[in-house]
């Protein structure tokens, strides 16, 4: 039986490609293909206009300040379509710079405010005197358990929604609130890259379930052999974030 393909849009991969988002796309695509789903990945470049009604999942990655400003301008031009699709449940995975773009504005260290898409109630500010938040990070999410990765951002983000999770190690949204990322509608926003998904297969599958539900495809995902993924998580945590190891063990017992 041939089912319709799940359509994943990678927005502006040539501009927002700072943190290997190609890895996130590979994980989403393979994890569907290994389960027999048809997948179509659409790379939407700067010269094209996104067709939000066609997509079942949108990935927005991170770029430098300059590239992010170009993307903000592009996306503002089609913000109404994007907004109504998101209100209808279009899943969005937004990472680092892409995450910042979802809010009201992003303030550069110079004080200049780059307007965002206003999809969520959120602002980001990069002050010239504040250091970049850089390093390994671990987050506890009620939905998907421990999320691990690397963060590297100058902006501090505040928002009026649920966070993705609680910071176990590292900085998160602003380095002080103990919150990381954002969950609202089917939006998954986060500063965690590394890239995000390879070492966080539970998160990848949660995002995929949202996308399958939105596409009216069966949401049931058969378990995969994630031996390498789990080993990579354990090895990374015991090497770089020993304080998170007990949490990871608890999670493994629950699984």
């Amino acid at each position: 039986m041939r089912r319709k393909a799940l359509c994943i849009a990678h927005l502006y991969p040539e501009l927002l490609n700072l943190y290997a988002d190609r890895g996130n796309i590979a994980v989403l695509q393979r994890r569907l293909e290994w389960r027999g789903f048809e997948v179509e990945v659409v790379r939407v470049t700067h010269s094209e206009t996104p067709q939000f009604s066609r997509y079942h999942l949108v990935l927005l990655g991170g770029g430098s300040d300059r590239e992010q400003a170009i993307v903000a301008e592009k996306l503002r031009a089609c913000a109404p379509e994007f907004r109504s699709a998101v209100q209808n449940g279009l899943p969005v995975l937004a990472i680092c710079g892409g995450y910042q773009l979802l809010g009201e504005y992003y303030q550069l260290p110079s004080g200049e405010k780059v307007p965002g898409l206003g999809l969520v109630d959120m602002v980001t500010e990069a002050r010239p005197d504040a250091p970049r938040l850089i390093g390994n990070i671990a987050v506890w999410s009620e939905e998907v358990g421990v999320i691990v990765g690397f963060e590297n951002h100058g902006g501090r983000t505040r928002h009026g929604h649920r966070p993705l999770g609680r910071v176990l190690h590292g900085h998160g949204n602003d380095g002080v609130s103990g919150q990381e990322g954002l969950r609202h509608l089917n939006i998954w926003g986060t500063y965690v890259h590394g890239p995000l998904l390879p070492k966080n297969p539970a998160l990848a599958d949660a995002v995929l379930r949202d996308a399958l539900g939105y596409a009216h495809l069966p949401e049931q995902l058969e378990p995969l052999n994630d031996r390498l993924e789990q080993e990579a998580r354990t090895a990374f945590v015991s090497l770089r974030m020993e304080d998170v190891a007990p949490m990871l063990r608890t999670e493994a017992e629950l699984r």
């Binding site: 890895g23 590979a26 994980v27 393979r30 390879p198 070492k199 390498l228 993924e229 080993e231 990579a232 090895a235 990374f236």
Partner: peptide
């Protein structure tokens, strides 16, 4: 980071 590399090759 041997494990990260293995994961990269798998995908």
């Amino acid at each position: 980071r041997a494990h990260d590399m293995a994961l990269r090759l798998k995908y």
